[in-house]
Design a protein around this nucleic acid. Structure first.
Lengths: 254, 254
DNA sequence: TTTGTGAGTTTGTCAGGACAAAGTATTGAC
DNA sequence: GTCAATACTTTGTCCTGACAAACTCACAAA
């Protein structure tokens, strides 16, 4: 009995590798499998070809095939079961991109971000900020205060501290780009961040700046971000208009 | 020149493997390395023995050693650099435990949680809830409303919907344990969740239930959680007293 | 002083093979 | 027909061996 279902090999026929490319073989295989899954050519719940056959057909070793599949398993796109096979997971368990910045989110959501730089100066870290960044008190930092608009309306008041040795951005750069874009451009890749999200009522000054009624609910967020080496990159203390913004967070365990 | 620094091998001498154990070799090595790091016996920034020597000393193959190290790299405990070596990362980049529940957090923080079950019944999912859980409308769900106290004071009002086929907890269980404990006990391991966190002012009824002033700021959180197979486990819509609670979230990109 | 050059070290990629463990499906005894 | 034993499939673990790429450092040349 050779039905379509019992022969999942036919679903991944167009995967092929280029041995002249500097891109690792396992990554080529993983990328092409990912495309087949994301395009829907291999449907949710479908079984993909088993490791041994796939390796043979692509003329790569089984460890290479395993590594490609493992790569996608870690991203939640595939689920493996010993004795059963490897199946395509439901799209809702696919691990999302994380650690993006507000600016990127707004651009992606077509909400026309605009940034007004209220303050920009080099100063010494206060004790609280030094502690958050786990740096010695008095370390020189770049202090930034920005007002972020979306679709023409004020959305958030953002205060950030960045070690001077990490980044000292120009006013124009801050008006044009999100902070995380500037960090990455300077070669600092945030790997992990701790955020605390809370809420409180707006003070009179905040209400005026953000165009809210006095006492309106505000979302607060403080964050510290580090790179892979444990170097502190950024501390931020932001307030958002709760009527216009909420945080969407994707968590994964595994 | 054979200084302490140029011979990091001496730091991991007590790592050893047991070939009679059913625990995989790579995992034994990883666990023991992890203990050495967490106990501080290998300090932050210190280089660990290189793969080849470590493999030779433990009498395991290099791929096995690599896999153990890779395991810790993915958890942010080690950082690898080609041509340089593998060093112990700063503790702040170590990936945290995620997807824990409020109850667990409160227990961990010594805040004496107590739960009052306000409502518990089996009903049909509304369109909104069915959509959040990605189930057909009208699917039978367990509907739960709870009031959570911490240190004797009301903290949060929690409404949850769980597919009946996933869990149908008893009132006493809900009063005794967090929802995630019950889910895990029933064999449902949450792997990924989407949360939306916002804020708004309390209605009169909410203020009365939670012991706040009318118009006080509340934190709102809606969440849907899935297991590794993409099966929806839980939908929740919670409100927290912003004066008593905030969310701490650890994000990682890697 | 600065700039290449080359040797040495360390991690990254890949092959091919072997056996174990956990499922699924089939078969045979009762 | 039911249930247990068996065969088969598929992923999991582990090995040896080989070469490539990135980095450090010492040393020579400009």
């Amino acid at each position: 009995m050779t039905s379509e279902l019992s022969d999942p090999g036919n679903l991944v026929r167009r995967v092929d590798v280029d041995r002249t490319s500097p891109v690792p073989l396992y990554f080529q295989v993983a990328t092409q499998l990912q495309e087949l899954i994301e395009s829907g050519e291999i449907g949710v719940g479908a079984r993909i070809e088993n490791e041994v056959d796939l390796a043979e057909r692509l003329r790569v070793s089984r460890p290479t095939t395993r590594r490609a599949i493992q790569y996608l398993v870690e991203r939640g796109m595939l689920v493996r079961k010993r004795g059963v096979g490897t199946i395509v997971a439901h799209p809702s368990v696919r691990r999302p991109v994380e650690l993006s910045s507000l600016y990127d989110d707004l651009v992606a959501g077509d909400r026309e971000p605009r940034t007004e730089v209220l303050d920009l100066r080099v100063t010494q870290a206060s004790d609280a900020i030094a502690q958050a960044l786990q740096l010695p008190p008095g370390t020189e930092i770049t202090w930034i205060e920005r007002l972020r608009y979306a679709s023409g309306e004020p959305l958030a008041l953002m205060r950030n501290a960045i070690p001077r040795t990490v980044l000292e951005p120009a006013r124009e750069e801050l008006a044009e780009h999100g902070l995380y874009v500037l960090l990455r451009r300077a070669g600092h890749v945030p790997r992990i961040a701790t955020q605390v999200i809370g809420a409180r009522s707006a003070t009179t000054a905040e209400a005026r700046t953000l165009g809210e009624r006095r006492g309106a609910s505000l979302l607060t967020m403080t964050r510290t971000a580090w790179d892979a080496g444990g170097r502190a990159l950024e501390y931020g203390s932001h307030v958002y208009r709760a009527s216009r913004y909420s945080f969407e967070i994707n968590l994964s365990a595994g």
